Amino acid sequence: MATPSDSIAPVKATCHCGAVTIQTPSRPREINECQCTICRRWAAAWAYYDPKEIRISVTDSSPTKKYVWGDRDLEFHFCSVCGCVTHWKSIQESRKMGINTRMMDPDEVKTVSRRISYGTLSTPLRSKETAHSEDKAQY
Rank of each mutant, 00 (worst) to 15 (best):
A13C: 14
V109D: 09
S94V: 04
C79P: 04
R95I: 06
A2K: 11
G70A: 10
K96C: 01
T59N: 15
D71Y: 06
D135G: 07
E93G: 14
Q138V: 15
D71I: 01
K52V: 15
H132P: 08
P4H: 07
T111G: 13
H87D: 04
A45L: 09
V81Q: 12
E33D: 08
K110T: 06
K128I: 11
H77F: 04
Q138Y: 09
R72D: 06
R126H: 14
Y49R: 07
A43W: 03
M104A: 07
L74I: 03
A47S: 15
T123N: 09
K136N: 04
S90A: 10
P28R: 03
P63T: 01
R115A: 11
A2C: 11
Q92Y: 11
T24V: 14
S5Y: 00
V20M: 09
K128Q: 14
V112S: 05
G70S: 03
N100K: 13
C79E: 01
A137Y: 11
N32W: 10
P4S: 05
I8Q: 07
S133E: 13
D6H: 05
E108F: 06
D105Y: 06
S26F: 15
S5N: 07
G18L: 06
T111H: 14
S127E: 13
R41P: 02
T86L: 07
T120R: 07
C17L: 13
S127Y: 13
K65D: 11
T111I: 08
V85C: 08
W42F: 05
V20G: 03
R114E: 14
M104V: 00
T21D: 02
T24Q: 08
S5W: 01
V85L: 04
C39G: 10
I38Y: 11
V85K: 01
T24N: 08
K96L: 05
A47G: 15
M103W: 00
T24W: 09
S113A: 09
K52E: 14
W88E: 15
Q35V: 05
P28C: 03
H16T: 07
C15Y: 03
W46P: 02
M97I: 02
V109W: 07
D107K: 04
F76M: 12
D135E: 02
W88F: 15
R95Q: 00
C84Y: 03
A2I: 11
C82W: 09
A2Q: 10
P124C: 11
E134C: 03
I31Y: 03
I56V: 13
T130I: 09
R41E: 05
K110A: 13
P28M: 04
T86I: 07
S90Y: 05
S113Y: 05
S94Y: 01
F78I: 02
I99C: 05
R27I: 10
T101G: 04
V58Q: 14
M97L: 13
P106W: 01
T3I: 02
T101A: 03
C84E: 05
S80N: 03
H87A: 01
P63Y: 09
S7C: 09
K136V: 04
T64V: 01
K89Q: 12
A137T: 02
